[in-house]
Amino acid sequence: MSAPVAVPAQTEEQRELVAVLDAFVAERVRPRLADIAAADRVPDDLHARLGSQGLWSLGMPEEVGGGGGDLPTLVLALQRLATGSAALALTVAHAHAVVAVLADHAEGRSAAAEVAAGARPALVDLVRAPVTATAQDDGPVLDGAVPRVDAGDARLHLLLEPPGVPGGVALADPTVPGFVAGPVARRCGLAGATTRAIEFDGCHLARLAPFPATAAAASRGRIVLLLGAAAAAAGIAEAAATAAGGYLAERHQFGGPLAERPVLRRRLVALRGHVQAALDSVWARGTRTAGLAALPADEADTLAGECAAVAGRCTSTAVAVGADAVQLHGGYGYLEEYAVERLMRDAVSLRAAAAAIT
């Protein structure tokens, strides 16, 4: 069955990318969903395959080893990946968000190159997090926690605006004393995200390699991650609507397929309309921020707020579409054998993840 929405690929290169990603999802991602769920992480070989096909670093600057793609192309790629695994799309979004911050600063370019080469990072925004800095003779000491980070398998954490470094950033890895990645959290869905809390327990700020960053760079990181979450939500919604349409077309009652029943056909059309609206809103915001690297600080900050709103709307749409897709399956929608059961859970968890980002 054809996709229920019009994918907004504008160029021949983008259309080719859609074909590559759809094949990657069908051949590499969906057959591994059980493995991803069992381990609650993206398998190393699948991660390596993303890199070998140029998908991991698609939208990262060429100067650090990336593909140089613009933000609309990245948004499109994340949406297509999320039709198979939203957690995989969110992992790629974290990587691009981290590089969007680091690539502008000499102190961060080597770390940005590591990410482009395949290191798994997480962007951790500390602006509103309950983390405090206490002055001591040898410098500030951090205490507190970030309750949820949905890239918990990260080997590198980029901390945005930690206490004691106003407007700056810091790099941390699990070996830093006092910096603790907590146990994997239980959640409804989003298998593969390896969700954890990040804790600071007497962590000396100096050990986190802090350095000043521009306000525009920090906002760019937030924009990329929020649009990534919104694109992942649009991917979930499309996959759920496609599954519902396929089920209604295959299921026969009353002398024909259920998809021909007027009431169900109208519900399916409405479902597809919601998906298209979500996808169009993500694309419109991504297109507006195509020149992300050149945005001045005030405009980048404003756009970050707008992207937070887009992420909120799209994740809520994914939940609504997922719930309707489950209902259109009747009682079968609650069985694990049907994709909509997982997609509904993924939508709920992604909405919580997006709320944690903002």
Rank of each mutant, 00 (worst) to 15 (best):
M60G: 05
D280S: 11
V169N: 07
A234N: 03
A217P: 07
A129W: 12
A129R: 13
H47R: 11
A347D: 10
R345P: 00
D44N: 02
R342G: 03
T302R: 15
L335D: 15
L190C: 02
L81M: 11
T242D: 06
A308R: 12
A34E: 14
T317C: 12
Q327R: 13
L295C: 13
L156C: 04
L81Y: 09
G322R: 04
L21A: 09
P147L: 08
V127L: 11
A218R: 15
A293G: 07
A218P: 00
R186A: 12
G255M: 10
A19I: 04
T358Y: 05
V176L: 05
D137A: 14
R220W: 07
A185T: 10
G84A: 02
H329Q: 04
A97E: 03
R266F: 01
P140A: 02
A111K: 01
V115E: 01
V176M: 05
T242R: 12
V146D: 08
V131T: 09
D201C: 06
L88I: 06
A100H: 01
G144A: 04
G330I: 05
P121L: 00
A277R: 14
V98N: 01
A347Y: 10
F254T: 05
V146E: 06
L295S: 11
L126E: 08
A113C: 04
I36D: 05
P162F: 00
E62T: 15
A181K: 12
A87M: 10
A112Q: 11
V141L: 07
R207Y: 01
H329C: 09
R155I: 04
A39I: 01
Y334H: 14
G168N: 02
V124L: 09
Q10E: 15
P61W: 05
S281D: 15
A243L: 04
A278P: 09
Q253G: 02
A34N: 02
G330C: 07
P61M: 04
V18Q: 06
G245C: 03
S349C: 06
V131A: 08
A113Y: 03
G54C: 10
E306I: 08
G65D: 10
E306W: 07
A297Q: 09
V5T: 14
E299G: 01
A185R: 15
L88V: 08
G167P: 09
L158T: 01
A23Q: 13
Q276E: 04
S52G: 00
A172H: 02
F200V: 02
L295I: 11
L295Q: 14
P262D: 11
M344T: 08
G312T: 11
D324C: 02
A95P: 01
A244I: 03
